[in-house]
Design a protein around this nucleic acid. Structure first.
Length: 872
RNA sequence: GAGGGUGUAGCUCAGUUGGUCAGAGCGCUUGCUUGACAUGCAAGAGGUCGAUGGUUCGAGCCCAUUCAUCCUCACCA
């Protein structure tokens, strides 16, 4: 018989086991039409990324689901891959080049991309290796990359499809501009934060010198871009001024007063300055009122030549200078402090400038509609359900999606401009000439696509689309998408509308949403706070199973959780418990012990544990199917520790010592329950369960492919469960009394049990010797033992002669107190049972249960009274 | 401005469709070299389930109001 080491050493076990899984190709999936598919596509981590707790949680949950379904017999595919992360990666490479003193413009596009690919080759696989440390059972043979050939083909296909349908267009719009990344970003990529700011109230004089009009701004640096002042057409105060010309103070440019309903009469002074190039609302007003658009900023955050004397200043310098000049010119009326939301880039946290720019956009409304319907119709379900609302809210108010980025690392936009006629040729393949005039003087768009444009296609691009592959046929639509709520807008929503449009079908049945892992104090883990916990460090210290168990335990869908090392310790202790239980069992097995069957003949405790295990199987399966992973692991924990180890193994020792047939019997049950429980535990703690399972007598190569336990009618032993409960209640009561009296376990005592359930307590005799420090047990109808401690349970009166240890006064008090609490309980139940409403409306089973409870309590009170009488 | 989450033992949190649901882990107290495990065993203390009202025979769970706290989205001349 193989042996387990005295101590579980995750470091030694995990790498060895993972390697054996890889060698066995157990993670690999091949489309098998005979079997039902279960598919998960991984949320592709950025190639720039390092494994953090968020990944650890996300991948633990996915691996639990995948391993569970694999064991259930599904044709299971967990498809891994990485995301090229255009902004993040490009920023890293630019930063690295800066160290060398060169810019990307210095070396040009091709050389830059060469460097990027080199970088990818060097670091892109790092996070994948880290995922493996977690035990992730991805099909690594199918690993994909958003910028690989297949994904790129899918991207071009989708771009062209949408363009041909008129759902992608190019135009001048206000977009969010990051002056650090020097690219446009989408609305979703802007994070807002409240900042202290000011309203600067300014006086714009009329050209004819007849007065002035007051306007206010929070961004004085945009004043050089003002091209109008708007008032509401019905505003009596200003009606007569419409059409008048005002002069921008300091700047000196003349601009008209225009009428537009955007100006709200009850807001501010009712007059609003219009800067079409730097504000989305102003842009619209500008269009309606035919105002010119003057962009006063450079793409790296300076004022440009249009800003006149302010050119070359940073935006902040310009703000200060303008305010100062306005004041000197007497145009500044007042400064009113205020708080306002300032947008910043979600990648680099630089303040984002709204700015007019020619970009590519996806027209969202026609795409959003079917995507909303799909979720409304339940084709894709969010778990927990409340995320439906968040999804709907976003989708229903969505604006067009700016998809072009002024970056090089990414999918280049498949559009070519004709130098002769200006026509745009959009094509899947590189065109040789203009589609309109046939000129060969064409040039491809310099920009690349938003990273999320390619990740939006992930569920089908990775399965081979636009080719009709067997994989796509079999594994699509995927089953479950596991991700955090922070990424619903970026990714989940975009996958749904992309799939609806391209595939005519939702990308997944279920979106299983989890929260974020916070630090011990409930703060978000972040680089700037330096409070991040490195999962790899935790794995190194406690093992991957312990980390996984920690992340699964107490995790409820959609909610954040706090990480603490104490929790990992608890999980590590649990692993240790499982390990030692197995060691104990193995210690008692013979060489070449065959794989056991459940014996024909079973003792009471065998039936009890089998029955409880059987229930556990049902509940854990049920919980996993409903994505209640935290509940499932809690049940496993309780069963293994409190039921199997603390009771069954202790009871098993009796027959193991006896030897012979009885020992054989109990060994079979021990091995059976242990190895079946390991299967239920395997999705949560894959390494330790595999290591132990391999050591126990088993059939098959790996626990990974062992059949998931199923509920078995033959293992239902309800009456035996009840009998065991009666015995356990008695044992606990005895322990309790002895403990209260400070009797050490070494001091054995005679125990007398007066009961109507003599058959049960006859069996319990040996149990009591083992677990309740009984020297001997006498079972009978009634006893009269002077000077004994008496203990009353619902089914027995127990006497323990304790001689001088007994304080009769205290005994009486204790019994009295117990009687009182029991009577209180009984009164509560009787109140229910005498309530006609309860009797009429409560289900039969509930009433029966209450009646039984009442009977038990009545019996108990009777016995307490008898005991008290006997003490007189 | 709109929407949402959370509030349960000292701490961190479970509690699945309203009826053995008042729970777990950690911490705390007490006692144990119990033949797998001190990363352990046994016993114990500790909670009006944020507050108030309602629905119901019955509410930690459903509804309304309210307080606290966190988050998301939107807007701001």
């Amino acid at each position: 018989m193989k042996e387990l080491a005295t101590k579980y050493d995750p470091k030694e076990v995990e790498d060895r086991i993972y390697k054996s899984w890889l060698e066995g190709k157990y993670f690999h999936a091949q489309p098998n039409p005979e079997k039902k598919p279960y598919t998960i596509v991984i949320p592709p981590p950025n190639i720039t990324g390092q494994l953090h707790m968020g990944h650890a949680l996300d991948n633990t949950l996915q691996d639990i689901l995948i391993r569970f379904r694999r064991m259930q017999g599904y044709d299971t595919l967990w498809l891994p891959g990485t995301d090229h992360a255009s902004i993040a990666t490009e920023a890293k490479i630019v930063a690295a080049m800066k160290e060398e003193g060169i810019t990307k413009e210095d070396i040009g596009r091709d050389a830059f991309l060469e460097r990027a690919w080199e970088w990818k080759a060097k670091y892109g696989g790092r996070i994948i290796e880290q995922l493996k440390k977690m035990g992730s059972s991805c099909d690594w043979d199918r690993e994909r990359f958003t910028l690989d050939e297949g994904c790129s083909k899918a991207v071009r296909e989708v771009f062209c499809n949408l363009y041909e349908k008129g759902l992608i267009y190019r135009g001048e719009r206000i977009i969010n501009w990051c002056t650090h990344c020097k690219t446009s970003i989408s609305d979703a990529e802007v994070e807002y934060e409240e900042h202290d700011g000011n309203f600067w109230h300014l006086r714009y004089p009329f050209k004819d010198g007849t007065g002035s009009i007051e306007v206010a701004t929070t961004r004085p640096e945009t004043i050089p871009g003002d091209t109008g002042v708007a008032v509401h057409p019905d505003d009596e105060r200003y009606k007569h001024l419409i059409g008048k010309t005002v002069i921008i103070p300091v700047i000196g440019r003349e601009i008209p007063i225009v009428a537009d309903t955007y100006a709200k009469m009850d807001k501010g002074t009712g007059a609003v300055k219009i800067t079409p190039a730097h504000d989305p609302n102003d842009f619209e007003v500008g269009l309606r009122c035919n105002l010119p658009v003057i962009n006063v900023m450079t793409d790296d955050g300076f004022m440009n030549e249009k800003a006149g004397k302010y050119a070359g200043m940073t935006l902040m310098e310009c703000r200060e200078a303008i305010v100062k000049d306005m004041q000197q010119a007497g145009a500044l009326i007042k400064i009113e402090p205020t708080k306002h939301e300032v947008g910043s880039c979600y990648r680099c946290h630089t303040v984002v400038e709204p700015r007019v720019s020619k970009q590519w956009f996806v027209k969202m409304e026609p795409l959003a509609k079917p995507a909303i319907k799909a979720v409304r119709d339940g084709k894709t379900k969010f778990i927990p359900e409340r995320f439906n609302k968040i999804y709907f809210n976003w989708m229903e108010n969505i604006r067009d999606w700016c998809i072009s980025r002024q970056l090089w690392w990414g999918h280049r936009i498949p559009a070519w401009y004709c130098n002769e006629c200006g026509e745009i040729t959009v094509s899947r393949e590189e065109p040789s000439k203009c589609c309109k005039c046939g000129s060969t003087y064409i040039k491809q768009d310099e920009d690349t696509l938003d990273t999320w444009f390619s990740s939006a296609l992930w569920p089908f691009s990775t399965l081979g689309w636009p080719e009709k592959t067997p994989e796509l046929e079999h594994y699509y639509p995927t089953s479950t998408l596991v991700t955090g709520y922070d990424i619903i807008f970026f990714w989940v929503a975009r996958m749904i509308f992309s799939a609806c449009e391209q595939m005519g079908e939702v990308p997944f049945d279920t979106v299983f949403i989890h929260g974020i892992v916070r630090d011990e104090l409930g703060r978000k883990m972040s680089k700037s706070l330096g409070n991040g916990i490195d999962p790899l460090v935790v794995i190194d210290k406690y093992g991957a199973d312990a980390l996984r168990m920690t992340l699964a335990t107490g995790n409820s869908p959609g909610n954040d959780m706090r990480y603490s090392e104490k929790k990992v310790e608890a999980s590590r202790n649990f692993a240790n418990k499982v390990w030692n239980a197995a060691r104990f069992i193995l210690m008692n097995l013979d060489e070449n012990e065959p794989v056991p069957h459940i014996p024909e003949e079973l003792a009471l405790e065998d039936k009890w544990i089998l029955s409880l295990f059987n229930n556990l199987t049902k509940e854990v399966t049920d919980n996993l199917e409903k994505f209640e992973l935290g509940v499932a692991i809690q049940k496993l924990y309780d069963f293994i520790w409190d039921i199997f180890c603390d009771w069954y193994i202790e009871l098993a020792k009796i027959r193991l010592q006896t030897g012979g047939e009885k020992a054989k019997q109990v060994k079979a049950v021990l091995v059976y329950v242990m190895s079946e429980t390991l299967k239920l535990l395997h999705p949560f703690m894959p390494f330790i369960t595999e290591e132990i399972w391999q050591t126990l007598p088993h059939n098959g190569e790996t626990i990974m492919k062992a059949a998931w336990p199923v509920y078995n009618e033959k293992l239902v032993f309800e009456s035996d469960e009840k009998k065991m409960e009666i015995i356990m209640e008695a044992i606990k009561a005895i322990r309790n009394r002895r403990s209260e009296m400070n009797v050490p376990p070494s001091r054995k005592a005679h125990i007398y049990i007066a009961t109507e359930n003599k058959d049960i307590f006859d069996i319990a005799t040996v149990f009591m010797q083992r677990l309740a420090s009984a020297a001997d047990v006498t079972v009978g109808d009634s006893f009269d033992i002077p000077g004994a401690v008496s203990i009353v349970t619902a089914s027995a009166k127990i006497y323990i002669p304790m001689g001088d240890l007994v304080d009769f006064e205290a005994e009486r008090k204790r019994l009295n107190k117990e009687k009182e609490t029991t009577e209180k309980k009984l009164a509560q139940i009787n109140a229910k049972l005498s309530n006609p409403g309860f009797l009429a409306k409560a289900p039969e089973a509930v009433i029966e249960c209450q009646k039984a409870e009442a009977a038990k309590l009545t019996e108990k009170i009777k016995m307490i009274e008898e005991s008290m009488l006997a003490m007189q």
